[in-house]
Design a protein around this nucleic acid. Structure first.
Lengths: 182, 182
DNA sequence: TGCAAAGCGGAGAGAGTCTCCGTATAGTTC
DNA sequence: GAACTATACGGAGACTCTCTCCGCTTTGCA
């Protein structure tokens, strides 16, 4: 990639990250991103052929943080319930960090053609690790996809309705208790 | 209302219901509805000032069916878990009946200014009745809003990803067990 | 039958995503 | 350092969508 192209790409992602974070996916227009990054619309669309692909680039750094959160939760001293709850709330918090991300990523969970497919694999892998570690404490037959969708659903509701942290926590507690063996 | 206006209104709602049900909220354009109902855009917008208000009119008949579903579930013979599950799956099924409805209605749960406010009250009231009836079997302190949001979140995921009924059922079972006292 | 009020409908404003293509520049080769 | 080519730039505008404005038509009452 030519040096000017790389500079422009970096600037676009940086500007887009700030805009998406503060205003949410829908409320940011591509024109706005182009103007903010001081490039033309053509340049923006050459780097990112759709708005979703730009969003994907903005969310790039998340995979590492997801894995770190799993590691942290699973090495906690304490009962399985506490480890599970810690992971679920970290997971939900990461999903709601950017407005609109939770619904979008969760919708892409079963769609290999989505621009978010790589991120979904990370999430599914993280939940798979949780299942393997907590195994016997969990409801028999529970799958990574179910956890991903349940928590994604809760996160999407929290995000959409801009709920406070305690509302999110109480819903996650219900999900966690449902996931634990009864 | 003048007779011609009433006829047009009825035809618009009928056409819109068919389109929304088959294609989902986002994929239907107002132009399409106007053309299908053989009216001009102006006529459509006089009857329904926004696309959401048209959607609301399309969903009008639901309130009765919600209350009927609660009645049916709560008079089932069987343990609380069975009654709860029956209601939750009816509730989720109704929310996913029209593509896009689950997310929209659930997002409006806490917003009195939404065009769906009346429908939300119906849902909250239904869940409140469930809580009062099952009371001692449920997790202490559980609220109608929490149930509405949890099931709405699950329904939105099911709807978005077009999941089969058994995937929905397994997630609702987890939520139900979380809602029951442990 | 005549007339005001109510309703109709389509052109078009405004906003959004995304494309096309003439122009400019980076980086290589002599 | 000059010439050349592949690469990148940028903005006008095509297309689509929601929603408005306003001149024309129809209804229903007196």
């Amino acid at each position: 990639m030519r040096a000017d192209a790389q500079r422009n790409r970096d600037r676009i992602v940086e500007v887009a990250r700030a805009l998406f974070r503060s205003k949410g996916f829908d409320a940011v227009s591509m024109d706005e991103v182009a103007k903010g990054a001081e490039v033309g619309a053509g340049t923006l669309y050459r780097h990112f052929p759709t708005k979703e692909s730009l969003y994907d680039a903005v969310l790039e750094a998340w995979a590492d943080r997801v894995n770190a959160a799993v590691d942290r939760a699973l090495t906690l001293d304490g009962p399985a319930r506490e480890q599970l709850l810690s992971w679920l709330s970290d997971y939900a918090a990461m999903l709601t960090e950017h407005k609109g991300a939770a619904a979008r990523i969760t919708a892409a969970l079963g769609d290999p053609g989505s621009p978010f497919a790589a991120k979904c694999q990370t999430y599914l892998g993280a939940n798979q690790r949780v299942i393997e570690k907590l195994d016997s404490a969990l409801r028999p037959g529970v799958e990574a996809m179910q956890i991903s969708r349940l928590v994604g659903g809760v996160a999407a509701v929290v995000d959409n309705s801009e709920l406070p942290a305690d509302a999110a926590a109480s819903m996650l507690a219900i999900v966690a208790d449902g996931l634990l063996a009864s």
